[in-house]
Design a protein around this nucleic acid. Structure first.
Lengths: 221, 221
DNA sequence: CTGAAACAGTACCGGAGGTACAGTATTCCG
DNA sequence: CGGAATACTGTACCTCCGGTACTGTTTCAG
């Protein structure tokens, strides 16, 4: 029972890395079992077919990703009571997490599946859609919270701003792969952070131009 | 000779659609030839193997994409002499082009290849990298040109801002696929446009008689 | 008329996904 | 302590597909 879970986890880890590097169809079961040190029978004991492997792999990925976001957002709130500052800190932390991977970011399984959608069943595709929606809704809620205290400087739809974070992360992962430069992800998250700063940070417009009245900008790095 | 090019083009079109929907490995030659109405011999007359198909397909895609960007940027310059206004117009046009596809955007072949990189040889991967670099450099040049007349309101690296456009487009294509909502691409390009507007648009408060005291970057860190 | 271009036809190989079981070692639980 | 579930191994087999290697056959331009 305990040992079975361990093998199962090893298979999922190897499979995920292979899928992110070669795609789902090009990920051969024979290669997975060779690397995991098991036989084909062992593989099919844990997963009835390749589709079930994809399904469980995706669930695992979504959970892991949720934990990362939860952690980053929670740590942001611990470090500042102001919702804008907390989110800016969270984005900085997210940028750091993204760049702290030794061999570069392995890739986003959601993006990977979207580019091979015809290979997967509705159940898998629905799970990808629901997880993307959940992330977008979460970011949207954060933005609403910020706007209560910091009026936005552009009448842009917050849904689009919320979506933009996922888009920038996924897009920068692709660019980091294309150019073989892991730092692109961190820099893009920081670029999005600049956007948030510009969108919400109050301008000294109304205030009297005193030399030290740099307002919020002084505290925002 | 003429007929051969036509068949070749048909194969490439069918193959590209299949690769973007199912991935490269899952795209079977037998399916391509069935849809194209030719035999396997006919296919291998035009392409010596699947890898050559990928290589020519990618070249074709990069050329087509370059044409789209050229067109959009040129039309922007025709409609305004101000570099900022011209770029904002170009972005609006780009957003429209992206949403004007009947069945949603079929996907970015570069992104698709990046998520299956281990399936392709160095030649293909180098071509993806060089085309991404070319796009980034082009956007970077536009930003430099804008900055000559419109000082940026945030000391962000222009390389990152230039990268961001590609990232947002690629990321939003993924989101549009994940959520089955083609409008996301257009909205994300427009969100990036808001960022450009916020970054370069002059604020009335900054207008001070002395030229060197207009350092916006000094107040908004 | 001829020869190159543009295919079609046929046959075959190897690898991979998947099925079907039969057997075995380990471990947990009563 | 013993049976039963758990966690596999081993073997055999089937089908599909990418790819190779040929030998025709049709079309059309020079």
């Amino acid at each position: 029972m305990r040992k079975g879970d361990e093998t199962r986890e090893r298979i999922l880890e190897i499979a995920e890395m292979s899928v992110l590097a070669k795609g789902f169809a090009a990920t051969s079961i024979e290669e997975i079992i060779a690397e995991a040190g098991i036989t084909k029978s062992g593989f099919f004991y844990h997963f009835k077919d390749k589709n079930e492997l994809a399904h469980i792999m995706l669930k695992r990925y979504v959970c892991a990703n949720d934990r990362v976001f939860d952690d980053v957002i929670e740590r942001g709130h611990q470090l500042s009571d102001d919702p804008l500052q907390a989110f800016l800190i969270s984005l900085k932390l997210l940028a750091e997490v993204m760049s702290d991977l030794p061999n570069g970011h392995p890739g986003c399984l959601i993006a990977c599946i979207c580019y091979q959608e015809r290979q997967f069943d509705r159940e898998v595709l629905n799970l990808t859609a629901r997880s993307v929606e959940a992330w977008n809704a979460r970011f949207r809620a954060i933005l609403d919270n910020i706007a209560l205290e910091h009026p936005p400087r552009d009448p842009i739809d917050f849904d689009d701003v919320a979506d933009m974070l996922s888009c920038v992360v996924d897009g920068s992962i692709i660019m980091s792969k294309a150019l073989n430069d892991p730092s692109r992800i961190e820099r893009q998250v920081m670029a999005f952070r600049s956007f948030i700063k510009l969108l919400f940070s109050s301008t000294p417009q109304i205030r009297v131009p005193l030399p030290n009245s740099t307002g919020v900008s002084g505290t925002v790095n």
